[in-house]
Computed example of a mutant assay.
Amino acid sequence: MFKNLIVYALDADWCDGIANTAADLLAEKLAAHPLLPVNQASMSSSGWTPFAAFGGPLYSIGKGNFLLSLGHETRMLPASVINREWKARAAALKDQQGFAPGRKQLRDLKDLVIDELRPKAFIKSTTTMALLNLADHLLIVDTPSAKLAEDLGTVLRADLGDLPGIPFDTKQTPSAAMTGWVATKSAPPFFVVEGSCDLIADNPSKSEVKVARCDLADPAILKMIGDGKIVSKLSLCWRERVSFVLTDKGIIKRLRFLADTDADEGKNGADQHAEDVFAASALIFSSEVSLLLADLTAALGGAK
């Protein structure tokens, strides 16, 4: 269902208050901000879209968990295209008036080029999915990009009226913990260190070494750690059920359930059986992610 996890810790009192609010009222707030087609005067548009074929923009999966999907439409107008047309017109203007255009003329000319090219630009459609876990006071966003996660949080905050939260943080930094696991050839309870990692120099050079499908107990790798490199990414397996890559920013990437919990069947139909399959899979997914994050938090010394 999700391939990446960026986690925000939400205020507990706020979550408890939202949990006591009718789900229909929350859904109405998001439904008031649907994704609309990007108009000719804009470069982008965003709004909430149905998470599944069975309902609106807020899909309740029980136990205080809701799935959200923020849609985006962006006009793709490469800078190279703008600059090529801008320079051609600037050259033509120079020939026409007999002297080089000034800064204001160039700025106005560039704005004109953008205005004329914008309606012709290709429109790219994307979605950013999220899990609002009120029981654990978490917002979990399916993206490897901190900016996209922040964008979703900004829109959700505006539509709900508030969203008090901060990026999830632990007492031990992920890089320190991961470096220790590799250096000591050990792993915390419920986790297994797999055979891929990135090592980065802990100095201004930030030189990086990528290790893939290798025994991380290799003396050469241990020597690099002994010489001062730290682990910035590490592949892990959790409870023999989920594999993923943990980064030094605490982002989980390449999340993969080793047993199928994706509701692919439920995503493609609207009959009752498909909805039941999707609902069951979504509930399993949210429960597994909640337990995974609890175990990972403990492995990193607990939440700050």
Results as ranks from 00 to 15, higher is better:
Gly55Ile: 10
Leu36Thr: 15
Ala22Leu: 11
Met76His: 05
Val38Gly: 04
Ser69Asn: 13
Ala88Gly: 05
Asn20Tyr: 01
Thr74Met: 12
Leu132Asn: 02
Leu70Phe: 13
Leu67Lys: 13
Ala100Ser: 06
Asp13Ile: 09
Ala88Arg: 05
Asn20Arg: 14
Leu109Tyr: 08
Gly55Ala: 12
Leu132His: 08
Gly47Gln: 11
Lys29Gly: 04
Ser46Lys: 11
Arg75Phe: 12
Arg75Leu: 09
Asn83Arg: 07
Met43Cys: 11
Asp24Val: 13
Gly98Pro: 06
Ser80Gln: 11
Ala52Pro: 00
Asp11Trp: 05
Pro78Tyr: 08
Gln40Trp: 00
Leu67Ile: 08
Leu58Lys: 04
Thr126Pro: 00
Leu134Lys: 07
Ile123Pro: 08
Ala32Cys: 04
Asp136Thr: 11
Ala88Asn: 06
Ala92Gln: 06
Gly98Trp: 04
Ala90Gln: 01
Thr126Glu: 14
Phe122Pro: 01
Thr128Ser: 01
Ala12Pro: 13
Leu106Cys: 06
Asn39Gln: 07
Arg84Ser: 14
Ala53Asn: 04
Leu35Thr: 04
Ala52Trp: 04
Pro57Asp: 02
Leu30Ser: 09
Ile114Val: 15
Asp13His: 07
Lys87Cys: 03
Gly71Val: 10
Arg89Val: 07
Ser45Trp: 05
Trp14His: 03
Ala91Gly: 04
Ser42Asp: 15
Gln97Lys: 03
Arg89Gln: 15
Ala41Arg: 12
Ala12Gln: 08
Val38His: 01
Ala135Tyr: 02
